[in-house]
């Protein structure tokens, strides 16, 4: 955070200074992210336990995920995190137009991620690996594959909801930045939105090896 004096215009009555308010907002987001760690953690625990119990079945099912789309999506999301961090940097240095453009780029990369994710879901529907709705697998490990894909859809689905919310927030920030709402003296909302966006990326960093890379090296 730069040491420039902050704007008092946005100061709420419960704060003594704008800096106190800005730091409190960031802290609030960090506490929320701690909550989010556990929100995803419940599913990750289920994944860990089931994978440890059925290693072969999980490897078999994971091998059939769309690793190309998954990898491209990983790159897309990491790049969006980069543009987001850059946007915060630009806001901090009072480059308002750049902030808006970089935020817009972040939101667009998020949309690209969702589009690719949708394509992947569509392919999976056609392959018949959607448990409960369209699942046509047989063999001794079919029930394990069903559990794998159930967790796959829950994990990526909940992550997708987070991406969607993130896109909304980032787009809103882009509009506000374009209208000149932020400056080096007031950019807390951009910073806090950035934290959220990076968290969404962090979740994907762990989902990527768990979903797409398991069982690739053969049985």
């Amino acid at each position: 955070m730069s040491e420039a004096p902050l704007d008092q215009v946005h100061l709420e009555p419960q704060y003594a200074t704008a800096r106190q308010q800005a730091e409190t907002a960031a802290l609030g987001m960090w506490v929320f992210l701690a909550t989010e760690v556990l929100f995803f953690g419940g599913m990750l625990f289920a994944y860990t336990y089931l994978r440890a119990t059925f290693p072969e079945g999980f490897a078999e099912a994971a091998r059939e995920t769309h690793v190309v789309i998954g990898t491209i999506n990983t790159v897309v999301l990491l790049t969006s995190s980069f543009t987001m961090a850059w946007a915060v940097h630009a806001a901090e240095h009072d480059r308002r137009r750049a902030t808006a453009l970089l935020l817009a780029a972040t939101a667009l990369l998020g949309l690209l991620f969702l589009g690719l994710k949708g394509l992947e879901y569509y392919k999976e529907w056609q392959e018949g690996v959607v448990p409960g709705l369209n699942f046509h697998k047989d063999g001794p490990n079919a029930h394990v594959a069903a559990m794998f894909y159930y967790l796959y859809f829950m994990l990526t689905g909940v992550h997708g909801v987070h991406v969607t919310i993130g896109i909304g927030l980032v787009a809103l920030m882009a509009v506000r930045a374009w209208r000149g709402g932020f400056s080096a003296r007031y950019f807390t909302p951009v910073e806090v939105t950035g934290l959220y966006w990076h968290f969404v990326d962090l979740v994907w960093i762990f989902l990527y090896p768990l979903i797409y890379l398991a069982g690739r090296s053969g049985p």
Partner: peptide
């Protein structure tokens, strides 16, 4: 990401405590 994009270690200590708490509690589970 946490260090260089989110700048966790340049912010207040409390943010580190919050992030650490999330991981620690997950480790308990």
């Amino acid at each position: 990401v946490v260090t260089l994009f989110m700048k966790l270690f340049r912010g207040p200590v409390l943010a580190r405590v919050a992030a650490g708490a999330g991981l620690f509690w997950l480790a308990i589970l």
